[in-house]
Amino acid sequence: MPLLALGLLLSLWQRDGLLRAWPVFLVAQVAGLVLAPLAGPGAALPLIAGGVLVAVSAALLRRVPAWLAYLSSVTCGFGSLAVALQGHGFLDLPWPAHAGLLFGVNLAAALAAGLSQAVLAGWPGSAPRIALRVAASWIGAILLLSLAFELSRPLS
């Protein structure tokens, strides 16, 4: 869900927002891969909370500042890989598993951004931007509920 929120935010930021942020996004993913062994049992909480902030920003901000787009890319890229590989040593899994995780993270963000761009390009007026902001608010609500469920149970 945070990656979907990121795709929406980057599309609302600029027409080629994901392409502009992709180098930062990729570096953050590699950092997440390297630092994943340090992630503890509550590693998903910061990712979910960051996803809430990304979704809320996409829903509420009329203009997304560049620094927020890049910071959101770092948060979602780093967090996704750190959480996915939590509990494993550095390069503990076979290389296809790491490649698949990297591919999946990039695919999720790219699909959300691509679909958002198609919506923005396909219909005239402000209705598509409003629809994407509504979608971002729903993603934020889902993430907020997920965060509440995560916080209501003990960490194991």
Rank of each mutant, 00 (worst) to 15 (best):
V34R: 06
A55H: 07
G17I: 03
A5I: 01
G89L: 06
L10M: 03
L68Y: 02
P128K: 01
A44M: 12
L3S: 10
L111W: 15
V74K: 07
G77D: 08
L144N: 09
W67G: 04
L68F: 10
W13G: 03
L155S: 06
A127H: 11
A5K: 00
L107W: 15
A66D: 13
W67P: 03
P37W: 09
R63W: 09
L53C: 14
A141L: 15
L85G: 00
G89M: 07
R15K: 09
L45I: 12
V27L: 13
L111E: 11
A110K: 03
N106I: 04
I142T: 09
L71V: 12
A110F: 12
S116H: 11
P23A: 05
G17C: 10
P37V: 01
L19H: 05
A109P: 03
P124F: 08
S126N: 08
A99G: 09
S72K: 15
V56R: 10
A49C: 12
A39S: 14
P46K: 01
L61C: 13
L101V: 06
V74R: 02
A21T: 02
T75R: 02
L155I: 14
S11T: 08
S116C: 10
V24G: 02
P41T: 12
V34K: 08
G100F: 04
W123A: 13
G51Q: 09
A28M: 05
A39E: 10
G50R: 00
T75Y: 04
G140N: 02
F103E: 11
V83F: 09
G7Q: 03
P128S: 05
S156G: 09
G42S: 13
A131F: 08
A131L: 14
A39R: 00
A49Q: 10
S57A: 15
V27E: 01
A21Q: 01
A113E: 09
A127S: 13
G89P: 00
L18P: 00
L61W: 14
G104A: 15
L38P: 07
A84C: 10
L61I: 11
A66Y: 15
P94C: 14
C76I: 15
L18T: 02
L3I: 08
L53W: 10
A69E: 01
E150H: 13
G51I: 09
W22L: 11
V27F: 12
A49S: 14
L18R: 03
G125V: 10
L102T: 03
L18E: 02
G7M: 04
L8D: 02
A43L: 12
S152T: 11
G51D: 05
P154Y: 06
L45C: 06
A127V: 13
H98W: 15
A28P: 04
A31T: 04
D92V: 04
G140H: 03
A59I: 01
P65A: 11
V119L: 12
I142P: 00
L115S: 12
A148V: 14
A136E: 04
L147W: 10
D92N: 11
W138E: 07
Q117I: 02
P128A: 04
A121N: 07
L81A: 07
Q29C: 05
A49E: 08
A28C: 08
C76A: 15
D92Y: 14
L45E: 06
A113G: 11
G89K: 06
R153T: 12
G42A: 13
V34P: 05
Y70C: 01
P41N: 13
S116V: 08
L6Q: 05
L144D: 00
G114V: 07
V64G: 13
